[in-house]
Simulated scan of single mutants.
Amino acid sequence: MSRTDSNPTVPPSRSDARPLVRMLLRDPAPLLAVCVLLVIVFSALFGPLLVGEATTKPNFALRNAAPQLEHGLAYILGADNLGRSVLGRLVLGARTTISIAAGAVVLSLSIGGALGLLAGSRAGLLSDVIMRLTDIIMAFPSLLIALIVLYLLGPGIGNLVLVLAVTRIPIYLRTVRAEVMEIRRRPFVAAARSMGAGQGWIMRKHLIPLVLPTLFTIAAVDFAAVIIAESGLSFLGLGVQPPDFTWGSMVAAGRGYISSAWWLAALPGAMILATTLSLAVLSNWVRLATDPAQAWRFFRASKGSTT
């Protein structure tokens, strides 16, 4: 019997996902968040194959039709001002919204993480330059930077991903730099260096594995923040342009019909809320469950429920 099985107060290790899965199955809030996210991701990946042309083909006979089942499952959430299926547009909007958010998060995580490793592992002029550039970016509100850049470059998916990534880089950079500077002072790093290990080996074997869990937790929260930022920019007309659309642009298109067809703005807004709230709940649970100072509570509760 392993130590984790025999002692309920010992938190599960990061490398073994099975205790985390068992704890997740017994915690309703993060389990519901996972289910919501899985449904949204599945819809974004495979939904466009199922909704058909009701998403893009106008049907003026169903203009601003209320949610119903008379005209098939495609109109269960109603139709927009051109008679297109709101359900289908939510599915297609999910694909665009998630793609933009994923691209921005991956790009900012990669650039910010690499620069943070460089700034934290090598003190000197290069580190100072990197941090001063970061301070300059953080000195301006991210939404203001996005508005200025998109006004100059023009709206579009590529420009939107780029500007959202640039505004999020300082978050990863400063976090990684702080983590690396703290890890460098630990005894095992000093022991590896005294045995002749190079900086590259220490970075691959010690620094990056210890920094990655923190980065992934931040990325989950940042994913929600990017979705909100993208929705705000699309609502202002500086995001994705027709014929492409996102949940934010759907809210903008439906605001003129809020009194007569509330579902045009309320449903994409509800999708934004459900996605960001689920990401926040899940990321907070993962942070606590993988924290040795907090995880014992989850693990002890899960062990107690089986006895």
Rank of each mutant, 00 (worst) to 15 (best):
V51L: 03
E53L: 04
A54D: 11
T55P: 00
K57P: 00
A61P: 00
L62Y: 03
A65R: 12
A66K: 07
A66N: 00
A66E: 10
A66F: 01
A66G: 04
H71Y: 10
L73W: 14
A74P: 00
Y75H: 12
Y75V: 02
I76P: 00
I76N: 01
G78E: 08
G78I: 06
A79M: 04
A79T: 02
D80Y: 03
L82W: 07
G83I: 10
V86M: 12
L87Y: 10
L90A: 08
T96S: 14
S99E: 14
S99L: 13
I100K: 05
A101S: 14
A101K: 02
G103I: 07
G103S: 05
G103E: 07
A104E: 08
V106D: 00
S110Y: 05
G112I: 06
G113I: 02
A114K: 05
L117F: 12
L118A: 13
A119R: 02
G120S: 10
G120I: 07
S121F: 14
R122M: 10
R122V: 15
G124D: 09
L126Q: 12
S127F: 04
S127M: 05
D128L: 09
D128Q: 13
D128G: 15
V129C: 13
I130Y: 08
R132S: 12
L133S: 14
T134I: 02
D135E: 15
I136G: 05
A139N: 03
A139C: 12
F140L: 15
S142T: 11
S142Y: 06
L143C: 05
I145V: 15
I148P: 08
I148R: 06
V149P: 04
Y151W: 14
L152A: 15
L153A: 14
G154F: 11
P155Q: 05
P155E: 03
G156H: 07
G156W: 11
I157G: 06
G158R: 12
G158S: 13
G158Q: 09
N159M: 00
N159G: 12
N159L: 03
N159P: 05
V161I: 15
V161C: 02
L162D: 04
V163W: 04
L164A: 09
L164Y: 14
L164M: 15
V166G: 06
V166I: 15
V166N: 00
R168Y: 05
P170K: 01
P170D: 02
V176N: 04
V176P: 00
R177K: 12
R177S: 11
R177M: 10
R177G: 03
